[in-house]
Measured scan of single mutants.
Amino acid sequence: TEKEKEVKRLAKERGLSPDQVRELAQRAGFSPDQAKQIADEFA
């Protein structure tokens, strides 16, 4: 999704850790499970 792409782009730009990616995703409105899946891509 657009929102997911945006979260991943920000995460890459900022060099976020997987935990930070998960927090960012949840703040963007993703469920905890979705946020974990997104964060796992950065693990």
Rank of each mutant, 00 (worst) to 15 (best):
T1Q: 13
T1K: 15
T1W: 15
T1F: 14
E2R: 08
E2F: 12
E2M: 13
E2N: 11
E2V: 10
E2W: 15
E2T: 10
K3C: 11
K3S: 08
K3V: 10
K3I: 11
K3G: 08
K3E: 07
K3H: 06
K3N: 07
E4G: 10
E4V: 15
E4H: 08
K5V: 09
K5N: 13
E6A: 13
E6W: 15
E6L: 15
V7S: 01
V7A: 02
V7T: 03
V7R: 02
V7G: 01
V7F: 12
V7E: 01
K8R: 13
K8G: 03
K8T: 05
K8I: 14
K8A: 04
K8E: 03
K8Y: 07
R9E: 05
R9T: 04
R9Q: 07
L10I: 15
L10E: 08
L10C: 13
A11S: 05
A11P: 00
A11V: 01
A11H: 00
K12M: 08
K12A: 10
K12Q: 09
K12N: 07
K12H: 12
K12C: 13
K12E: 06
K12D: 04
E13L: 15
E13S: 08
E13A: 13
E13M: 12
R14K: 13
R14M: 15
R14Q: 15
R14V: 05
G15N: 12
G15A: 07
G15D: 07
G15R: 09
L16F: 06
L16P: 00
L16E: 01
S17P: 04
S17R: 09
S17K: 09
P18K: 11
P18A: 13
P18H: 14
P18W: 15
P18C: 10
D19W: 11
D19I: 10
D19N: 10
D19V: 09
D19Q: 12
Q20K: 06
Q20F: 04
Q20L: 05
Q20P: 00
Q20C: 12
V21E: 00
V21G: 00
V21Q: 00
V21K: 00
V21P: 00
V21N: 00
R22G: 04
R22F: 15
R22P: 01
R22V: 14
R22T: 07
E23I: 14
E23S: 09
E23R: 12
E23F: 07
L24K: 00
L24V: 04
L24R: 01
L24A: 04
L24Q: 02
L24I: 04
A25M: 04
A25G: 02
A25H: 00
A25K: 01
Q26L: 15
Q26F: 09
Q26M: 15
Q26E: 14
R27T: 07
R27F: 07
R27D: 06
R27K: 12
R27V: 07
A28W: 15
A28Q: 08
A28F: 15
G29F: 01
G29E: 00
G29W: 01
G29D: 00
G29A: 01
G29Y: 01
F30K: 00
F30Y: 05
S31W: 03
S31A: 07
S31T: 14
S31I: 03
S31Y: 03
S31P: 09
S31E: 05
S31K: 05
S31Q: 05
P32I: 11
P32A: 13
P32M: 08
P32V: 11
D33R: 08
D33Q: 14
D33T: 14
D33A: 15
Q34T: 06
Q34H: 11
Q34N: 05
Q34Y: 09
Q34M: 10
Q34F: 06
Q34W: 05
Q34D: 07
A35G: 02
A35T: 03
A35H: 01
A35E: 02
A35L: 02
A35F: 02
K36A: 13
K36G: 07
K36R: 14
Q37I: 13
I38T: 02
I38G: 01
I38V: 04
I38C: 03
I38E: 02
A39P: 02
A39T: 03
A39H: 01
A39D: 01
A39Q: 03
D40R: 13
D40W: 15
D40L: 14
E41T: 08
E41G: 06
E41S: 12
E41R: 08
F42H: 04
F42S: 04
F42V: 11
F42Y: 15
F42D: 02
F42Q: 03
A43M: 12
A43S: 10
A43R: 12
A43G: 08
A43K: 09
A43E: 13
A43H: 07
